[in-house]
């Protein structure tokens, strides 16, 4: 387990538990003759008590995470990523590649598969887990070809009446020379336009970081869900701090000011539902988090399946047309 700065007390407790377990499993407590059983029981009790303490501490900490702490949780290296969620929820996942114009961009993975028995088109930002995969997936930062692939896959899904599920987890669109020269802005604009146009259900879940234009390109959906500790923002707290406070160190304040938490966004009417994470965040028990997400996606997708194509499209457009018009 990797611990975040604010998880230090928890890390210490976990460390103690680990120590005791080591004693317990090894020969440490068995040295005294005839006292073997008693020693074991004592330690097991201690461990149990410590575990309880950890749970309490986790509950207390995670119940009142600050926006900046949530930002760190959302970026946690062990947090379930796009491919983890796909593999956890989608059977027969069949990846599809390429924008048919320039390249295959692995920052956005996507393909066909079955979600709860039904064919879906699923697409996700994938950040990668280690150096190799991070480079392969370009840290989840897509270039124009990534968004153009997404457009292609959305149109393919539309042709066969297949619902689309997108999983958002990106620091943002890739800021680089080649991305600009191939029309990063145009690619994102067209992706947004396509999201808003397709005549099949579109459900989005922000599973980690919803970074600005790179996120909204896949997220103009009928239903937008968000993990409890995910973030979604017009600019990263660091970027915002650099511009408005003229110091990256004000990132904490910027995180507060930007209202980037799932709870705030629900209040602002920008997202439709918050998906609970297991105690201590999705990175502690990824399987449980992914299962929760599966339930939430099903719950949100199901009512859309019977809806007429034109209605689906119109509802989606009306929803986004009203954004910012009504006070929260």
């Amino acid at each position: 387990m990797q611990f975040l700065e604010f998880e230090k007390p928890i890390a210490e407790l976990e460390g103690k538990i680990e120590e005791l377990r080591h004693l317990h499993d090894g020969n440490g407590v068995k040295v005294r003759d005839g006292d073997e059983a008693a020693g074991e029981i004592d330690l097991a009790d201690d461990i149990a008590r410590l575990r309880e303490k950890v749970q309490k501490q986790l509950k207390a900490t995670y119940a009142k995470l600050t926006p900046w702490q949530k930002t760190q949780v959302a970026r946690h290296p062990l947090r379930p990523h796009g491919l983890d969620v796909i593999h956890g929820l989608v059977e027969d996942f069949t990846p599809l590649a390429g924008d048919r114009a320039f390249a295959e961009d692995r920052a956005i993975v996507g393909g066909l598969g079955r979600f709860n028995g039904r064919t879906v088109m699923v697409m996700a930002h994938e950040k990668g887990r280690d150096t190799d995969t991070r480079l392969t997936h370009n840290f989840g930062m897509a270039k124009p070809e990534g968004y153009r692939k997404a457009i292609r896959l959305m149109r393919l899904a539309e042709r066969f009446g297949v619902p689309v599920i997108t999983l958002v987890d990106t620091a943002g669109a890739y800021p680089g020379v080649e991305a600009e020269e191939r029309g990063q802005a145009e690619a994102i604009a067209r992706a947004i336009e396509t999201c808003l146009d397709i005549r099949v259900p579109l459900v989005t879940a922000v599973i980690g970081e919803g970074g600005s234009g790179g996120a909204i390109a896949l997220a103009a959906a009928n239903r937008v869900l968000m993990f409890e500790h995910a973030i979604y923002s017009v600019i990263s707290p660091e970027g915002c701090a650099g511009i408005l406070w003229r110091s990256g160190e004000a990132a904490q304040q910027a995180a507060e000011a930007l209202r980037l938490t799932a709870q705030d966004l629900l209040k602002l009417g920008v997202i439709d539902a918050v998906v609970p994470e297991p105690l201590g965040g999705a990175h502690r028990t990824p399987d449980e988090a992914i299962a929760n997400l599966g339930l939430a996606i099903e719950e949100n997708l199901k009512p859309l399946l019977d809806r007429e194509a034109g209605v689906l499209r119109a509802e989606r457009r009306d929803k986004f047309l009203a954004m910012g018009r009504v006070a929260a």
Binding site: I192, G213, I216, V234, L244, L260, L321, M323
Partner: peptide, 13 residues
């Protein structure tokens, strides 16, 4: 930036 996510939502809008 000062209108946060609501500004981002002006992109689809």
């Amino acid at each position: 930036m000062q209108e946060g996510i609501l500004s981002l939502m002006q992109m689809p809008r």
